[in-house]
Design a protein around this nucleic acid. Structure first.
Length: 416
DNA sequence: TCTGGGGTCCTAGGACCC
DNA sequence: TCTGGGGTCCTAGGACCC
């Protein structure tokens, strides 16, 4: 880790404008200038807005809003499904472009990153470089980004958001407080609805007002995070650009909200198997295995619980994941329970399993691992929808039979 | 308005060990 | 024989982000 005096650090935060929508417009220019909403597409589903064009935002449409609400606010909008792999592809190109400017890049999400622009000839040089980056993104990818340049990450991030879309906001060193003071506290990264409300109780609405509170008061009220608040509202943020070490930490998960609440054990089992398949496959693709399996369940009233179990050794087997998740759900659920969502997660990840695989090659493969590997390979060749485990087929067949029988109500018994 | 999906980080309590 | 302190691991929940 290189040493740098904090005063010298210059950071740019780059954030793509309405990213998903922008990619859709790129692929279909007829959408330009129209109200476009990505997400919540299948009619009548329980979807939410992932991304809205600025034309749609003029009607009050916001991301994370239920799609139904968005349709009421802006009936004329074009609603499009989420094309995750297409956005990932563009994201890779964007991040590759960042890498051409500096190796010191901290990716934050699919469409934003911090870049360390120290070493481009002082602050003026960094600003020139940032301008050039913004121009290059537009010319090579046809997308607009908003950029903030400042002496630290927190201020740069706030700056990039201030004049979206197509914004370029520079906060010269020494002017951080003047810049921050009039802004709402909610602009501070990490201050969400709860903390915002809590601060409002203290009469704090702007960053300037927050700055009038002493450290002890904030510590008492917010714990460790209070100290962070104390510093951030003063424009102080010594956190370095963190270049990802790759792999290791983190978690892999998948969850699914059902079109209608489910209560039949075999339906729930089928969902768990599908989720386990997605999670374990993602882990295998990354060469990771995990020791802790988490089940998430959401009831119709939106109450959400999690149960997890730590295994003796790391796994990435679909079958182990599925059986563990099913056991956790079996212990959790009571007769008559209905669920609107189930999720399966894998954490305490390690890549050590790769070493073992290398040593034993196929010799050490269990039957379950072999099934996983063959299924993965087949899916890679012919597409992931083409192959379905026998258990899933059976569940689907039972469901068809149930419907065929009609009269028999669809939501009867729970498992024993 | 009836609330997605994939993540990260933090807290707090309990079990267990020395 | 009524009671300490610290460390680690595990579990559950919650806030927050995009």
């Amino acid at each position: 880790m290189r040493m740098e005096t904090p005063g010298e650090r210059i950071v740019a935060h780059v954030d793509m404008d309405a990213f998903y929508v922008a990619v859709e417009v790129l692929d279909d220019p007829r959408l330009r200038g129209k109200a476009v909403v990505v997400g919540g597409s299948p009619a009548g589903s329980r979807g939410v807005v992932c991304s809205a064009s600025y034309e749609a935002r003029a009607f009050g449409v916001r991301s994370a809003m239920p799609a139904i609400t968005a349709k009421k606010l802006c009936p004329g909008a074009v609603f499009l499904p989420v094309r995750g792999s297409r956005y990932s592809e563009m994201s890779s190109r964007i991040h590759a472009l960042f890498g051409r400017f500096t190796p010191r890049v901290q990716p934050i999400s699919i469409d934003e990153a911090f870049l360390d622009l120290s070493g481009f000839g002082g602050f003026e040089g960094a600003v020139r470089e940032a301008r050039f980056l913004k121009k290059t993104i537009l010319e090579t990818l046809g997308l607009t980004a908003s950029v903030g340049v400042a002496s630290n990450k927190s201020v740069a991030k706030i700056a990039s958001d201030l004049e979206k879309p197509d914004g370029f906001v520079v906060v010269p060193p020494g002017t951080e407080r003047d810049f921050l003071d009039p802004l709402p506290v909610r602009r501070i990264w990490g201050v969400g609805p709860k903390a915002g409300a809590s601060l409002a109780e203290l009469g704090i609405r702007t960053v300037g007002q927050l700055r009038e509170f002493d450290r002890d008061t904030l510590l008492r009220r917010f714990g460790k995070w209070g100290n962070q608040l104390y510093l951030l509202c003063r424009g102080i943020d010594d956190r370095d650009i963190e270049i990802p070490e790759d792999a290791g930490a983190g978690s892999v998960s998948a969850q699914s909200t059902f079109h209608r609440d489910l209560d039949l054990w075999e339906d729930l089992e089928e969902q768990l198997l599908q989720l386990s398949e997605r999670v374990s496959r993602a882990a295998r693709a990354k060469g990771l295995a995990g020791r802790t399996v988490t089940l998430r369940a959401r009831y119709p009233d939106f109450r959400t619980v999690t149960r997890n179990r730590t295994l003796a050794s790391p796994t990435r087997s679909t079958d182990v994941l599925y059986r563990t998740a099913a056991e956790l759900l079996r212990v959790l659920s009571r007769p008559g329970d209905r669920f609107r969502l189930l999720g399966v997660g894998l954490s305490r990840l390690t890549d050590r399993i790769l070493v073992q695989r290398g040593l034993f090659e196929e010799e050490g493969e269990t039957v379950g691992e072999r099934i996983d590997r063959v299924m993965d390979q087949a899916r890679d060749r012919i597409g992931s929808e083409a192959l379905v485990r026998g258990r899933l087929l059976k569940a689907a067949r039972r469901r068809r039979e149930r419907r065929a029988r009609r009269g028999g109500d669809d939501t009867v018994r729970h498992h024993e």
